[in-house]
């Protein structure tokens, strides 16, 4: 299960930076007043303004109408190693599919196909 989670790892990071970018973007345009004195300021800001890749819902791409709770390998990329369900903003899943996904994950947890929490 851990190796299934591996490709998901970049997601939290990009989600986090997205948040930062959003926060610092608008002040950046009127920036010089905030940190103009610092020599490192502008360069750092430039680095942070990378182009974000648009995340698309994986289920919409495959046109999934029903998320099967029995396929643990499909569901496992959407949970953390500790067993938490990953939020939409990290996986890019659309609202509708996320709704179905949570139900499927919870069903799978009940029949021990997915963990509720990581074992000690």
């Amino acid at each position: 299960m851990a190796e299934d989670n591996a490709p998901q790892h970049h997601a939290p990071a990009s989600g986090g930076s997205q948040h930062h970018g959003g926060g610092s973007g608008p002040p950046g345009s009127s920036g010089p007043r905030a940190q103009g004195g610092r020599p490192g300021g502008p360069a750092k800001r430039g680095k942070r303004n990378f182009v974000r890749k648009k995340k698309v819902c994986r289920f919409c791409v495959d046109k999934v109408d029903f998320i099967d709770y029995k396929k643990a390998d499909v569901l496992s990329p959407f949970i953390q190693e500790r067993g938490k369900i990953l939020p939409r903003r990290m996986t890019g899943t659309c609202a509708r599919h996320q709704r179905w996904l949570t139900v499927a994950i919870k069903r799978a947890q009940n029949i021990a196909l997915l963990p509720f929490a990581a074992e000690l």
Partner: peptide, 10 residues
């Protein structure tokens, strides 16, 4: 009616 990504795929 559907999310844009689905419409695009279609």
């Amino acid at each position: 009616a559907q999310p844009p990504s689905a419409a695009g795929g279609e």
